[in-house]
């Protein structure tokens, strides 16, 4: 699968397993992302996506397997640790603080300062200017960096969060269902920034359960199922229809289809029976009326 011309993976996990007590959350999961590529991580609810994100972003430590970043094996101890290496995670709903302004959000946790000693302060002008510039570079035209993030749409919020991660030197960007709660148009906005980030040479891990969002931006698809890798394909190996089928659970879907068909057939049969029964009734009724009229005469 790996051609000799492809760049080395930026982040790679090999046979990662994670257990919670008796629960096997992940078993022998392997995947990688190269710079300037989007690896889509797909899976239905309960497939282990969340656990895998947490392992990738340093929240959980894997019980087995190796984690390699830029070729070196490492153990991440915290999200902060991951962030320092340039592994940034943008969470679905935890990305922004609604009551704070865009520029305060943008620099939260990494505030630029000026001045010395007790007068060392948050450089607001620089922060406002940079926020507007950085968002502009990603193609997001913010109206007023002073406006509260709560006034932005969901898609804009995700985009600001992505722009922030890119600004702070993310080499790997992990996006946790960035399009899940968005409308069609808004999801499109976010997907455009995913491509922008990729074009800047960032390795993107895009987690979603929507194959229609994954397929246009992805270079590489990893399908998780019941804590294991169910499939690992490049884009040219996998047409969209097949991806959708696999996402929905392939065989399960077929079984479901048969079941529905059978139910429909049975339904038809029942309808026929009912119709036949009705005809009989009508005939009986006809006969009865005929008899009556004969008796009456």
């Amino acid at each position: 699968m790996t051609t000799t011309t492809a760049p080395a993976p930026l982040l790679e996990i090999d046979n990662i397993s994670k257990y919670f007590g008796s629960v096997i959350a992940l078993k022998d999961v392997s995947m990688f992302v190269r710079p300037g590529e989007v690896t889509c991580l797909l899976g239905d609810n309960g497939a282990g996506k969340s656990t895998l994100i947490k392992v990738l972003s340093g929240v959980h430590q894997p019980d087995e397997g190796t984690y390699r970043f830029e070729g070196a094996e490492m153990n991440l101890s915290s999200p902060r640790d991951a962030l320092e290496y340039g592994i940034a995670t943008v969470y679905q709903d935890l990305a922004m603080i609604p009551l704070m302004s865009v520029w305060r959000n943008f620099f939260l946790g990494s505030e630029p300062t000026k001045g010395f000693g007790p007068f060392k302060r948050f450089d607001a002008e620089y922060a406002k200017r940079t926020t507007k510039d950085e968002l502009g570079k990603m193609g997001i035209d913010i109206r007023d960096p002073d406006q509260a993030v709560g006034t932005l749409s969901g898609g804009e919020r995700q985009s600001v969060a992505i722009a922030r991660a890119v600004h702070f030197g993310a080499k790997v960007l992990i996006l946790d269902e960035p399009t899940a709660a968005l409308g069609v148009k808004q999801a499109g906005v976010v997907l455009r920034y995913v491509v922008q980030a990729k074009q800047r040479g960032i390795g993107v891990i895009f987690i979603t359960h929507n194959p229609h969002h994954a397929y246009p931006v992805g270079d590489h698809f990893v399908i998780l199922k019941r804590g294991q890798v169910y499939g690992d394909y490049t884009k040219d190996e996998l047409p969209l229809e097949q991806l959708i089928q696999m996402m929905a659970g392939g065989a399960d879907l077929e079984a479901l289809q048969h079941e529905l068909e059978r139910a429909a057939e049975e339904g038809d049969q029942a309808a026929e029976n009912a119709a036949a029964g009705l005809e009989e009734e009508v005939e009986k009724l006809d006969e009865l009326t005929e008899q009556r009229s004969e008796d009456g005469e």
Binding site: R80, A95, I97, P98, L99, R104, G109
Partner: peptide, 28 residues
């Protein structure tokens, strides 16, 4: 007021109150 509006700590204070998880995720 100086701490809240002008200092890094102020930004953290608003962040922690606004959404502690989001603040923690960005390294506050």
């Amino acid at each position: 007021t100086w701490v809240l509006l002008k200092m890094t700590w102020g930004n953290w204070i608003f962040g922690v109150g606004g959404d502690p998880n989001a603040a923690r995720n960005v390294g506050v």
